[in-house]
């Protein structure tokens, strides 16, 4: 089993977003970067599958040099080697193009990634990669088992889930509970330092979207407190004042 896991380096989930440079940039000062939580699920399942079936796990990141701590952590968790495409991941089509270019050279059985990156929430890259490679893409995947050359998958749908069967190769966008997050141990951290991390330059420059500026959501007005003894008033206010029921 030859698995490619695509990971993002994103601000920690507890980050309070602030802006800089006249609202044209996100302020990175003091922000802790982590592996995308959904990508972490994908990586953990990939390492489990490797332990079960043999094979290799390669980690791929499209990002600048400051993403390397996140890549090293992925190697510490159990990936065998890593590739970083040296470019700022600003547009989904561009990122997908980089992943597809590497996938075309390497014939992976599975290409896993998170259902979406938690910064831009596009959830597009797996679908575009699947299209570029001419293979199915499935997301969000909650369970994944491999039997021979068939993948048995549970996918979340609105109001429930569905079970699917598909032949390999596949591109999958993953989410919990596909695996328990793996935490690197000391041996993993030590061996990660010497694992191969190849840096390649991007191919093509098809950027189809461009962010011109950012905005923060307007603050909500003060919260109107209703004493518990008069809780019923809430329902009246929702009808007459807020007009939502």
């Amino acid at each position: 089993m030859k698995i490619l896991v695509c990971v993002t380096s994103v601000p920690d989930t507890i980050t309070k977003i602030t802006l800089t440079d006249n609202n044209t940039k996100l302020n990175k000062a003091g922000v802790q970067f982590i592996t995308g939580p959904y990508d972490d699920y994908a990586l953990s399942r990939a390492v489990e599958l490797k332990e079960q079936l043999g094979g290799t796990v390669t980690v791929l990141n499209v990002g600048e040099a400051d993403a390397e701590p996140v890549i090293r952590k992925c190697l510490a968790i159990g990936a065998d080697d890593a590739i970083r495409v040296n470019a700022e991941p600003t547009d989904a089509y561009f990122v997908a193009e980089q992943i597809a270019a590497i996938a075309k050279e390497n014939n992976y059985d599975l290409i896993l990634m998170g259902r979406e990156s938690i910064d831009y929430n596009g959830g597009q890259v797996h679908g575009i990669v699947g299209e570029m490679l001419g293979i199915p893409s499935i997301s969000p995947v909650m369970k994944l088992a491999i039997e021979g050359t068939t993948a048995k998958i549970t996918r979340e749908i609105e109001g429930g889930h569905e079970d699917l069967e598909a032949g390999l190769p596949l591109v999958l966008g993953c989410q919990e509970p596909i695996a328990e997050w793996k935490i690197p141990n000391m041996r993993g951290i030590m061996t990660a330092r010497t694992k191969k991390l190849t840096v390649v330059e991007p191919s093509g420059n098809d950027t189809l979207t461009q962010i011109s500026s950012y905005e923060l959501p307007p603050a909500r007005g003060a919260c109107k407190m209703i004493p518990a003894s008069e809780a019923e008033t809430l329902i009246k206010l929702l009808r007459t004042e807020a007009k939502v029921i």
Binding site: I17, Y120, L208, T209, Q210, Y214, P217
Partner: peptide
């Protein structure tokens, strides 16, 4: 938590 004004080119 934020909004991006995005140009589609």
């Amino acid at each position: 938590k934020a909004f991006a004004i995005t140009e589609l080119t």
